[in-house]
C-alpha cells in the first residue's frame, strides 16, 4: 500500500515537473512577444525624444526607460548609466554592454538580440534625420521578429503545454 502511494506520488511529481517545464516554455514564448512589443513601443518613445524634445541620449534613454517595464526598462537605464559614468564611451558601446547585461534574463531570441543591437550602430553619431531612419529600420526588422514571435506563440505555446504534460505521462508509463 505504502509502495503504491509512493509510486503514485512519484508519478504525480514527474508529470507536474514535465507540465511545469512545458508551461515555462509556453510562457517564454508569450513573454518574448510582450517584450518585443515593449521594445517596439520604446522605439517610438525614443524617436519622440530625439525628434521633438531633442534630449541628449543619456537623458533620452532615462526618460524612455522609466516609461517601460523590465527588461526593456533596464536596457535603457543601464545604457544611460554607462554613458553618464563614462562620458568618453560611445553610445553604441554603452548600448551593446547594456544589452549583454539584460539578455540572459530576457526572453529575446538571438535574432532579436541582433536586431536590438543594430540600433546602437549609429546612435548619437548622425543628424536627427539619420537617427530617425535608423530607428525606423530597426522597427521594420522588429516587426518581422514580432510577427514570427506571435506565430511561434500561437503555434508552439499550446504544443509545449501538451508536450510537457504528455511527455511527463509517457515517462511515468515507461518507468512503471
Amino acid at each position: 500500500m505504502f509502495e503504491l502511494g509512493l509510486k503514485t506520488a512519484g508519478a504525480a511529481c514527474i508529470v507536474a515537473a514535465a507540465a511545469a517545464f512545458g508551461e515555462n516554455k509556453a510562457r517564454t514564448l508569450e513573454r518574448r512577444v510582450q517584450q518585443l512589443e515593449q521594445f517596439q513601443r520604446s522605439l517610438k518613445l525614443l524617436a519622440t525624444e530625439i525628434s521633438f524634445a531633442r534630449s541628449l541620449l543619456p537623458a533620452a534613454f532615462t526618460s524612455v526607460g522609466r516609461q517601460c517595464t523590465a527588461p526593456v526598462r533596464e536596457l535603457y537605464l543601464n545604457a544611460a548609466e554607462l554613458m553618464t559614468a563614462h562620458p568618453e564611451m560611445s553610445a553604441g558601446r554603452a548600448w551593446e554592454l547594456s544589452l549583454s547585461r539584460i539578455y540572459p534574463q530576457s526572453c529575446f531570441s538571438a535574432l532579436d538580440r541582433d536586431t536590438i543591437s543594430s540600433l546602437g550602430d549609429s546612435l548619437g553619431v548622425s543628424q536627427r534625420e539619420g537617427q530617425l531612419k535608423q530607428i525606423r529600420l530597426v522597427e521594420q526588422h522588429l516587426s518581422f521578429n514580432l510577427a514570427k514571435a506571435r506565430e511561434d506563440r500561437e503555434r508552439l505555446a499550446r504544443l509545449w503545454r501538451y508536450l510537457g504534460f504528455i511527455g511527463g505521462a509517457a515517462l511515468v508509463i515507461l518507468l512503471l
Binding site: 530625439i50 531633442r54 534630449s55 541628449l56 541620449l57 543619456p58 533620452a60 554613458m83 562620458p87 568618453e88 560611445s90 553610445a91 546612435l123 548619437g124 553619431v125 548622425s126 543628424q127 536627427r128 539619420g130 537617427q131
Partner: peptide, 16 residues
C-alpha cells in the same frame, strides 16, 4: 572626434 563626442554628449542630433 573624441572632443566632438564629449561636447555633444554623444548626441549630435541634439545640436543641429
Amino acid at each position: 572626434e573624441q572632443a566632438l563626442h564629449l561636447i555633444s554628449s554623444a548626441s549630435l542630433y541634439a545640436f543641429e
